[in-house]
Structure formats: structure tokens, C-alpha cells
Amino acid sequence: TTVKVNGTKYKFDTPEEAQKFAKKAADKYNLKVVVDGDDLRVE
């Protein structure tokens, strides 16, 4: 599972880890998590 934040992709072994990271990033930058198929985007 990958998470894309500000054009940078981060790869995670499990969707749970990816979800946690995406949520933290979204909170930090005051953005929202967008599900894109198997991957997540923070925008």
C-alpha cells in the first residue's frame, strides 16, 4: 500500500500502517485522506 503526500510516495507493508500514517499526515497538514484504489492520497 502506498500513501502519497505532497507528491512523495511512502510504501507500507500493511494497509493499517498506511492508514495510520495517512491520518497523521492529514491531521498535520490539515488535509484529508483520499482512497485511490488500493492506495491512499493525502490532499
Rank of each mutant, 00 (worst) to 15 (best):
A18G: 02
V35R: 10
A25L: 15
F12N: 00
V34R: 07
K4S: 15
E43M: 11
D13V: 08
A18P: 00
F21A: 03
V34M: 08
Q19D: 06
F21Q: 01
L31K: 06
L31N: 04
T8H: 13
A22G: 01
E17L: 08
D39M: 14
V5A: 03
V3Q: 00
A22F: 03
T14R: 04
V5F: 15
V33A: 03
D38C: 09
D27F: 10
K20L: 13
D13E: 11
D36Y: 07
K28T: 08
K9A: 13
D39P: 02
D36V: 10
G37V: 04
A26C: 09
V42K: 02
T14D: 08
K24L: 14
D39W: 09
V42Q: 02
L40M: 06
T2I: 12
N6G: 12
D38T: 11
V34L: 08
K23M: 10
Y29I: 04
T2E: 05
T14V: 03
D38P: 11
K28D: 08
G7A: 05
A25V: 15
T2K: 03
Y29T: 04
D39N: 10
A22Y: 03
V5D: 01
A22H: 00
K4D: 11
L31A: 13
T1G: 04
E17G: 05
V35P: 08
T8M: 14
K24T: 11
E43D: 09
G37A: 05
L31S: 11
D36H: 06
A26P: 01
A25N: 07
T1W: 15
Y10W: 08
T14H: 04
K20R: 13
V33H: 01
P15Y: 15
V33F: 05
K11F: 14
E17M: 08
A26W: 03
K32Q: 12
K24G: 08
R41L: 14
T14F: 04
D36G: 04
A18V: 00
T14C: 04
T14Y: 04
D36N: 05
A25K: 08
L40F: 09
E17C: 07
V42H: 02
Y10F: 10
N30E: 06
T2N: 06
D39I: 15
E43Q: 09
D27T: 09
A26F: 03
K32G: 06
L40V: 06
L40P: 03
T2R: 05
D13L: 10
K23R: 11
T14A: 04
A22P: 00
V35Y: 12
L40Q: 02
T2H: 07
T1S: 07
P15R: 13
K23E: 09
F21W: 08
T8C: 15
V35W: 14
P15A: 12
T2D: 03
T14K: 05
V34D: 04
V42I: 10
T8A: 11
V42A: 04
K28P: 04
N30L: 06
V3P: 01
D27K: 13
F12C: 09
N30G: 15
D39V: 14
V35T: 09
K20N: 11
V34F: 12
V35L: 11
L31I: 06
K4L: 15
K23Y: 11
K9V: 15
G37S: 04
F12H: 01
V5N: 01
V3N: 01
K20I: 13
E43A: 08
V42Y: 03
T8N: 10
A18C: 02
K32A: 10
R41T: 10
V35K: 10
V5P: 01
G37N: 06
A26M: 04
P15Q: 09
F21D: 00
K32D: 08
G7M: 06
Q19F: 15
K11V: 14
K23A: 10
D27P: 02
A25W: 15
A22S: 02
Y29K: 04
K24S: 13
K4A: 11
K11Y: 14
G7S: 05
F21L: 01
A18N: 00
K20H: 10
T8D: 05
A26L: 04
G7N: 07
V35I: 13
R41Y: 09
E17N: 06
V5R: 01
V33Q: 02
V33P: 01
T8F: 14
V5G: 01
A18K: 01
V42L: 15
G37H: 05
R41A: 09
F21S: 00
R41H: 06
K32P: 08
T8Y: 14
N6P: 01
E17A: 11
F21G: 00
Y29S: 05
P15V: 12
E17F: 03
T14I: 04
G37E: 05
V3G: 00
D38S: 10
L31Q: 06
V34W: 10
G37D: 05
N30A: 08
A22Q: 01
Q19M: 15
G7C: 10
V34Y: 12
V3Y: 00
L40Y: 10
K28Y: 14
K23I: 08
A25S: 07
V35S: 09
T14P: 01
V33W: 05
E43N: 05
T14S: 11
G7V: 03
K32I: 14
K23H: 09
F21R: 00
K11D: 06
V5C: 05
D36F: 07
K23Q: 14
R41M: 09
N6Q: 07
V42G: 02
K20A: 14
F12K: 00
D36S: 07
V34T: 10
A26E: 03
V5S: 02
R41I: 15
V42M: 07
F12P: 00
K32F: 10
T2V: 12
V35Q: 12
E17S: 06
A26S: 06
V5I: 15
V5M: 12
V3E: 01
K23V: 07
T8S: 08
T8G: 05
R41N: 08
D27Q: 12
A26I: 03
K4N: 13
D27W: 10
Y29Q: 05
T8P: 00
E17H: 05
V35M: 11
T14G: 04
E16M: 08
Y10E: 00
D38Y: 10
Q19V: 12
V34Q: 07
V33K: 00
K28W: 14
